[in-house]
Design a protein around this nucleic acid. Structure first.
Lengths: 110, 110
DNA sequence: GGAATATATGTCAGAATGGACATAGACGCA
DNA sequence: TGCGTCTATGTCCATTCTGACATATATTCC
């Protein structure tokens, strides 16, 4: 439980995009967390853009407000599966989901 | 449990790329399954390209041969998290993982 | 044929994740 | 101030996923 807690704190303490600097994590681990954080952030963006509340999104994906909050907060108890499913439920295309976790899009190319 | 079985059969019966045609699945559901199948296929490609056996990959990702086999078989009991983690462990960059599930072209993802 | 190696499939106990609920905080508004 | 709405966080119990194991099915080599 200590480990999970740490990861959560870590992911909340650092800004998205600097996940590479997480100390003590292997490159794969950071890459994975980075992806999840990007999905999380994007989920919030998508939801807000559609003027939905967490409660409404929860209903849409047959979950609960608290879990939606945790998804958006990058809580480590949330799986990538759930994040991706939710994004798809919000109407994001597969292509879009892909873009979300794609590396820093400075310009256009991917 | 009947449902899981069906999905597994479905995903094995159809070729990758035709997931859209899965009957009875919502677009989001098919998109999600499609992604997983693409990750699965790519995992096998990556592993074989590095001349690793399932046992060796299992050791690498701290799993078991049977689970690796299930990953590559697109078994529904395998999470996207595990698939992505494994690909990353095989040295695939985040960018690469992204490409794998990207719908772009008709070539086997690498 | 038999041994060795690689992969597939089923099962199960334990771990991780899920939804639901309670509750607290934050913000706006009358 | 209190009220309504939205979000955050913690906990509980159920469901799902995981690693491990057993076992079956190739395939190759002798």
């Amino acid at each position: 439980m200590r480990e999970a807690k740490r990861k959560r704190l870590v992911s909340k303490g650092w800004k998205i995009g600097s996940a590479k600097d997480f100390l003590g994590l292997s490159p794969e681990e950071s890459a994975f967390i980075e992806m999840k954080l990007e999905l999380a952030e994007s989920l919030r963006t998508h939801r807000e853009r559609q003027n939905l509340t967490q409660v409404e999104l929860a209903k849409l994906v047959k979950s609960s407000q608290s879990r939606v909050a945790k998804m958006e907060a990058g809580d480590p108890t949330v799986s990538m599966d759930l994040l991706v499913r939710s994004l798809l439920a919000l109407g994001a295309s597969k292509r879009k989901v892909v873009k979300i976790i794609s590396p820093a899009k400075r310009s256009s190319a991917t």
